[in-house]
Amino acid sequence: MAKVQVSKRFMDKSQRVLAYVILSVISIIWLFPFFYLILQSFADIQNPLYNTKSIIPNIWTFNNYKALFTDSRVPFIRWWLNTLIIAFFTALLQTILVLMTSYALSRLRFKGRQGLMKLILILGMFPGFLGMLVIYYILELLGLNTSIYSLILVYTASSAMSYYVAKGFFDTIPKSLDEAVMIDGGTKNTVFWRIIIPLSKPIIIYTILVSFTGPWGDFMFGKYIIQTAQIQPTGYTVAVGLQGLTTMATNELYGAFCAGAVLVSIPITALFFWLQRYYVEGIAGGAVKG
């Protein structure tokens, strides 16, 4: 009797094993840095007996974390609060502005629409920070340059540039919904608030997530604006503060950097995994709509 051709999966068992091996190697490569970070944050680097060669630290200590909260050169809590406030308000304002721009560009038809989209595309091609001198001067004019919260203004001001993903989402909502509301007696304002917003929960969460994690990761703007504003060191954001630690002459604060990095990453990663579904949807759906 001919050999029974059972389902294909049994045949390429060897292929599956190979696939698993590759995947696990990839995971190791991708997880090693964080694993190393956590280990370093417990390593007592200053201790002379410490053997820098080995990956697993031979001396464990907890004072790196203690240094974060006690050492005056590393006012971590202050940094963390600054960044949290900036991130919170940026997320709030930027989401509103991005939603408004992308809704207008995707669903309303008006004269300068194509022109505006082309302008934003072209502006995106210029290197961003060259204009920082001017932005700093404008902040100076507005008298905001001494407070680091002017960063909120800097981040939200250019939020119209990132209308792309949200616009992709709004394009998927059928046009006949707008027309149905028009006939039912609503204005375009009712359409926006009572039909579009309740329907676009995924993209709202995606925008909040992206604009919240923005300030945590931004380094360039923060460094320039804070440096000229001379409110070191308590006025730093987390990113600028930690970067400052690594470029210090002696690397005695390196342990503090690792601890700080771990503490910063935990909340953001937790937030990320909680909203992972929306993030994946946003990227896979919106970005490709191009």
């Binding site: 991708w30 997880l31 840095p33 964080f34 190393y36 970070l37 994690t213 945590w216 990761g217 380094f219 990113a239 930690l242 970067q243 690594t246 950097f257 690792c258 990095a261 910063v264 990453s265 953001i268 990663t269 990320f272 995994f273 992972q276 993030y279 994946v280």
Partner: peptide
């Protein structure tokens, strides 16, 4: 996705 979740400056500085 963990690498996207952790802020870029942390992983790069590390």
């Amino acid at each position: 996705i963990l690498t996207i979740a952790v802020p870029q400056f942390v992983s790069l500085l590390l």
